[in-house]
Write a protein that binds this DNA or RNA. Sequence first.
DNA 1: GCCTGACATGTCGAAAGTAGAACGTCACGT
DNA 2: ACGTGACGTTCTACTTTCGACATGTCAGGC
Lengths: 170, 170
Amino acid sequence: MSLRHGVLGLLAHSSASGYDLMRAFDLSLANVWPATQSQLYGELGKLTADGMIEVVAEGPRGRKEYAITAEGRDELRRWLIDVPPARVRRSDMLLRVFFLSQVDPDQARAYLRRQGEQAERALAELESIRGVVEGGDDDLRHHGRLAFEYGLRLHQAEAEWARWAEQQIS
Amino acid sequence: MSLRHGVLGLLAHSSASGYDLMRAFDLSLANVWPATQSQLYGELGKLTADGMIEVVAEGPRGRKEYAITAEGRDELRRWLIDVPPARVRRSDMLLRVFFLSQVDPDQARAYLRRQGEQAERALAELESIRGVVEGGDDDLRHHGRLAFEYGLRLHQAEAEWARWAEQQIS
DNA sequence: GCCTGACATGTCGAAAGTAGAACGTCACGT
DNA sequence: ACGTGACGTTCTACTTTCGACATGTCAGGC
């Protein structure tokens, strides 16, 4: 249940409303841990019930501003340090690769080429927001930079692999 | 719903029982699309109901051997070619990176070091089964080799990133 | 005064994934 | 004859995720 910890992490950085968090998820965590609005509001309710966060202010339009509690901070740290990250990552892209012999070689190569192009597009997109990431200087952004670099390297490797794999099919 | 296509893909390669598929998932697809036994048997039922697969033989211990139908093969091809793979991959490992400022630098560095070591372990493990992957010569294995190489490159990049990231924290 | 668009929260149902209990069979070694 | 372990299926219950819908408020421009 990492959605819970995503919310705690953002609230540890600064208090926010559900709507604020929704945007924060879309902006900074979109590529790492996407979440829908309904998921978010549901989790806020559960976190409040569990005493991990609390409503610290109410604004216009029923806006509720949430803040992390000491208990929530403890839980976040525990998760960061003590809970080992999941080792496997599902990839339907790679699952398809296993079964590529079911289509003819031309189509298989086309598939790999598309994947390569997609990786390059992702790479270009990342490069285009490099300025934004390197601009700010708060904690979140600082560590966001590490994640940014990860994405860069990952997509690079992916693009190269796709080119290599395409050549393997003959 | 890629579990469905994982099953279809394996059955396209050769007929098998639920139990056989379970082992096939554990062996070849474990790192790409893990599935539990209950999920598998459930999906076999649904696929049969949908006419994508059929029972072609019954063996001892209530064993049912499933084979893919023409309809199933069509669906598999459609998925392979027409359905674009998901672009985002959740990573709780990376999610933690965003919030690393919540623990002290020593702990943050330790976290990244552990991740680097984990990537290297994964790499070593892959290298150790290189012989197995390169041994066989059926279609599945041939394309499995492409996935294998992907894993190799990915973990390599991950290990390097982790080393780099660890140094960034000071 | 009215429309639009951003702000804001909430509920529902379906699909997908996780976890494990329960049950029975067959082959093999001792 | 007996136990063990691989083989094999089925069912239930829970959690997570997704997508859509419902509902309403406030600020600004025209």
